[in-house]
Design a protein around this nucleic acid. Structure first.
Lengths: 149, 149
DNA sequence: GTCGATGCAAAAAATTTGCAAGTAA
DNA sequence: TTACTTGCAAATTTTTTGCATCGAC
């Protein structure tokens, strides 16, 4: 509970973008949630506090935040994209177990450092070979959760 | 060029499903392509040879094949799902580089054995801890390809 | 004051569903 | 013959776009 401006202040001006109420609200919602929110989840949350904010703005803002690298976008195969804050006080690097039965997503952080270490090396090799600039990675394990198997 | 029935014959009866012309055609298309085909790609290819086959059947068949484990489904973030044959004479295990700029997908097979070896170990640990039965995994590196950076 | 940002309504795109008719086993 | 499959059309769902207005810097 230290107060002060959120860590993302100042990130916008540098890119020539503006800090607005909808952007604050969307970042705030993302930073408070531990889940993988869909655009509609975010809309509902934000719209409750600021009824003026529309779904279109949510989509446009998320696209911007992903481009800026502040937010990660995931597709787990259920037809809607999910979004997570890329960094910040409450975020921790993790990967996902995806249930093909019910769509449940389990985050795991165990062993992620080990995974990341290997992927970093491999990424460098691929980066060079394919002249491709890598800025993030995703690992998904697919299968069935305890309820679905 | 050995002829004989395709390797997937017999996979259906065991599950109580039937082998039909549309299913043959869809599997055949998938087995001939090296790419990550969308449902519409598959529809166009199959529909050319068998104009009677509709897009709905393609979607329903793909869902079935994914459930059977014969086909993998991927979402690279461009709003349409992609499908690849899971196994077969022409398939090789690979992972993906995904360009955030133009959506281009680069397959790589280098170092995949190394990745898979590690992930297998990690998968076992997670499997136990989360009571989750893992049957496949995906690794995506995200970034910008040579044309987009 | 300027130019980026927003809201609303409409459009577009991808995927799913209802139901009668077709067909593999 | 029986029950799984299919095709068509219609419906749903998610995401994008046009355009006039608003507001951050």
């Amino acid at each position: 509970m230290v107060g002060g401006p959120p860590w993302w202040h100042g990130k916008f001006a540098g890119y020539g973008y503006r800090m607005t109420v909808p952007r604050q609200a969307i970042l705030s919602t993302l930073s408070k949630s531990k889940k993988h929110l869909s655009a509609e989840d975010i809309y509902l949350s934000v719209h409750k506090a600021y009824p003026g904010i529309g779904l279109t703005t949510v989509y446009r803002t998320l696209e911007l935040l992903v481009r800026m690298g502040l937010v990660f976008k995931f597709d787990f195969g259920d037809g809607r994209s999910r979004y997570e804050l890329a960094e910040g006080p409450n975020t921790n690097h993790h990967h996902h177990l995806v249930c093909r039965g019910c769509g449940r997503i389990i985050d795991y952080s165990e062993l992620v450092d080990e995974e990341t270490k290997i992927l970093k090396q491999i990424g460098q090799t691929l980066s060079k070979k394919y002249d491709f600039s890598i800025d993030s990675h995703q690992i998904h394990f697919l299968g069935l959760c305890n309820k679905c198997k």
